[in-house]
Structure formats: C-alpha cells, structure tokens
Amino acid sequence: MHILDHYTGTRHDRPRRREEDVFVEKARQHDEAAIRAIIQRYNQTIFRMVRAIVQSDAEAEDVVQEAYVRAFSNLESFRGDAAFGTWLIRIALNEALGRKRQRRETDLSALETSPSVDVMMEAFGMGHSPVNPESDAARAEIRALIETALDTLPEVFRIVFVMRDVEGFDIAETAALLELNPNTVKTRLFRARAMLREALSARVSPYFGDLFPFDGARCADMADRVLARL
C-alpha cells in the first residue's frame, strides 16, 4: 500500500478514504469517537514531523495538540480539495514552523537586551531483536544516539529525512507537503543522509576499539584449550 493510501486514503484505497470522510463528517458534529479515531490515525506521523522541526519532545506534543485543536475547531474550512491527512499535516507543519520562528525571534530579542540541538534501527540490526531487558536497553541507547545525531542536522534537511526515511513518504508527496521542487527534496535527502552518517560516525568511532572484546578470562581460557589439545 502506498504511504498516502495508508495515512490519507488517497489513490486506490477508496474504502479507507470513504471511511475517513465519514470520520471527518462526524467530527464536524463534535463526535468524540470520530475525533479520537482521526487523532490515533495520524498521531505518530505528525509527531515525528513536528519533532524534526522543534527538536523537543515536550514542545512537539504541544504543537501536535495545538494543531489538532486548530484543525477540529476549523473543520468548516476543510473543503476536500486535498486529502484530509494532507490538510491536517500542513496545519501541524505550519504550527511547528511558527513556533520555531517565534522562538528564534524571542531568543534574538533576549540577546539584544542581555548584558552581556525505530529509522535506523534496521541499519544497526536491531529491528527485530528479541524482547528482553538487554535488547531493550541497547535499542534505547541506539535510538538516543540516532536522535541526537539527527538533531544536529539543519532543519531543512532534518524534516526531509524524517518524511522520506522515517515516515516513508515518496519524493512527490514530500515535495507537495513542503511546497518544494522534487529535485530539491532529492538533494536535501542526499545531504541529510550524508550528514547523519558523518554525525553517527563521529559519535560511534571512539568505541570501535572496544568491539568484539576477547581478553581477560576468555583469552586465558583459549590458551588453556590450545595447550590441552597440544
């Protein structure tokens, strides 16, 4: 299934689109179950996109919440020219970008008056590891490492990376949502991947010398076994 078929019910997924139309119509009538269903359908996608912009879990939650409030309070403005999911995502992106812009302006103002920062889990071979405390801890460490590295990317590259490699939107969809030229999306994705690899390498390479340790008791045991065979 195409990614926007999944999230917005467009293209060939007509039954899902019709189901979503029903939810939207019920939401217009303040139906709580319909509103909950819409929120649950889009929560993760919107959070990830917003988080890529504001770089804070707490602020991303605030932005997502505000975006939902704005959307459900103004459903009469949704005319169906675009898919509902596209309309909703744009509201969230605009809210996130507005927050970021406002924060930047506030920081500049303060400076003038002052006296004086689960994608690449597969790449690390952690995508389908058994559930146990050790693997959970390792996944958490890797996730934190990736998130920290991703946060170092400039915003224009970070949001494209999240939309393409984390959420799976294709080039055309990403370009449409961000109002960019498709070639610009390709270029930014290429640079984002390169910068992320570089950032991860800088954080991981100091630990390469500790990989596959074979010393201490294990080393001594090997010597004992070799000597025993000899």
Rank of each mutant, 00 (worst) to 15 (best):
M1Q: 14
H2R: 15
H2K: 15
I3T: 08
D5Y: 03
H6M: 02
Y7M: 09
Y7H: 07
P15F: 09
R16G: 04
R16I: 05
R17F: 05
V22L: 15
V24D: 02
V24R: 00
A27D: 00
A27I: 00
R28N: 09
H30W: 08
H30L: 07
D31I: 06
E32Y: 04
R36C: 14
A37W: 01
R41N: 06
R41L: 07
Y42A: 05
N43P: 07
T45R: 03
S56P: 02
S56H: 12
E59W: 00
A60V: 06
D62V: 02
V63W: 00
F72R: 06
S77K: 15
F78S: 14
G85L: 10
T86H: 15
W87R: 13
L88Y: 08
R90Q: 06
R90Y: 04
I91S: 02
E95R: 00
E95S: 03
E95K: 02
E95Q: 05
G98I: 08
R99I: 00
R101H: 05
Q102L: 08
R103G: 04
E105I: 02
D107M: 03
T113S: 11
P115T: 04
V117Q: 11
V117K: 10
V117F: 12
D118L: 05
M120C: 07
M121H: 06
M121D: 06
A123Q: 08
F124R: 01
P130R: 08
V131W: 04
N132P: 07
N132C: 12
P133V: 09
E134Y: 02
S135G: 09
A138M: 05
E141L: 00
D151Q: 13
P154A: 14
I159H: 00
I159T: 01
V160P: 02
F161Q: 04
V162I: 14
M163W: 08
M163T: 10
M163K: 11
R164C: 10
D165A: 11
V166H: 06
E167D: 04
F169R: 01
F169E: 01
I171Q: 10
E173A: 13
T174K: 07
T174I: 10
A175G: 11
A175H: 07
A176S: 13
L177I: 13
E179P: 04
N181G: 14
N183R: 13
N183T: 14
K186S: 15
K186F: 07
R188S: 09
L189G: 03
F190T: 15
R193M: 13
M195C: 09
R197D: 14
L200N: 02
L200I: 11
S201V: 04
Y207P: 02
Y207F: 15
F212N: 13
P213R: 11
D215P: 05
C219Y: 14
C219M: 15
C219D: 15
M222P: 01
R225D: 13
R225M: 13
V226D: 10
R229P: 10
